[in-house]
């Protein structure tokens, strides 16, 4: 499952730095020495953007005092990378890879052309929820509950990079059927074939997720850090209230912006 997702991103984002695997690759790891690792550490500490979050049962003044004493860092001007750089494909890329697996792993990548903090980002979240984000979503109902093809089938947003991934584990022989249902459901979204109820259901669940997330210290930090990554200043209240006012029309417009990029299938037998 993890492997097929990594492979999809490698194929889909071939010419983008996003395709790099976080742990690097074997050949290059060997070239790391004590000296160049330490040099890199010093450079990172001197030049990189650092953000410190402290959440919990703490005294603000005390923490500020500690921090200004312990972290005496020099001013810096971190460079920014435009994560949005997009390499558009002329046509949809379809890749099949054969390996010794019992279950076929289907991973599909889309370009959403919408990013965290954009005005239509909220509509994209609702789109994802109706389409495949939850167990009330179209993909779950149609691929799993109706066609009985899969145990897991879901869509997930990569909101800073403007990607959406659909993933499912299916029997090797059901590839065509699964892909065609997933495409049909996308068409239904573009055509506005979803109800007010599906919208309000999805809004309720997303708001619930946000509120649950801030119950934990880690979740609170994560939500705040999204702003740093995107260079935005969106308050928590806005994140929630903007979900509520998304209209059907806005969701359809977002659906129309989404482009299928790559279909990757890890499968057992030669097809």
């Amino acid at each position: 499952m993890r492997y097929s997702n990594v492979r999809l991103i490698q194929e889909m984002c071939k010419d983008e730095t996003y395709a790099l695997y976080v742990h690097g690759n074997l050949e290059e790891v060997d070239a790391i020495t004590e000296q160049n690792l330490y040099d890199y550490y010093k450079r990172a500490l001197a030049e990189d953007e650092l953000d410190l979050y402290v959440v919990g049962d703490v005294d603000n003044d005390e923490v500020t005092k500690f921090v200004s004493h312990l972290f005496q860092l020099e001013e810096r001007k971190p460079s920014t990378i435009d994560r949005r750089t997009i390499h558009k494909k002329e046509e949809v890329q379809e890749i099949k890879e054969v390996q010794d697996v019992k279950q076929g792993k289907l991973n599909i990548g889309y370009r959403t052309n919408v990013y965290f903090g954009d005005e239509d980002y909220y509509a994209l979240q609702i789109f994802n929820g109706i389409y495949g984000g939850f167990s009330h979503s179209k993909l779950f109902i149609n691929v799993r509950e109706k066609a009985s093809l899969a145990y897991y089938v879901a869509s997930r947003l990569e909101s800073h990079k403007g990607l959406m991934f659909v993933m499912s584990g299916i029997d090797n022989k059901n590839y065509e059927q699964a892909v065609s249902i997933i495409k049909e459901q996308m068409k239904a979204m573009v055509a506005g074939d979803f109800t007010e109820e599906e919208m309000s259901q999805t809004k309720a669940v997303i708001k619930n997720q946000y509120l649950e997330t801030i119950d934990t210290a880690r979740g609170t930090v994560e939500i705040m850090y999204h702003n740093i990554v995107a260079g935005k200043k969106i308050s928590f209240e806005d994140l929630i209230s903007k979900i509520d006012i998304v209209t059907k029309d806005e969701i359809m417009k977002v659906a129309d912006k989404i482009e299928l990029d790559t279909i990757y299938f890890l499968t057992e037998e030669e097809q």
Binding site: M1, V101, S148, L149, A150, Y152, I170, D171
Partner: peptide
């Protein structure tokens, strides 16, 4: 009967893990 297909996929998912 319908559930057998779904759980069958859950089982093969674990078989690959």
């Amino acid at each position: 009967e319908k559930e057998k297909g779904i759980i069958g996929q859950e089982i093969t998912m674990y078989d690959d893990n």
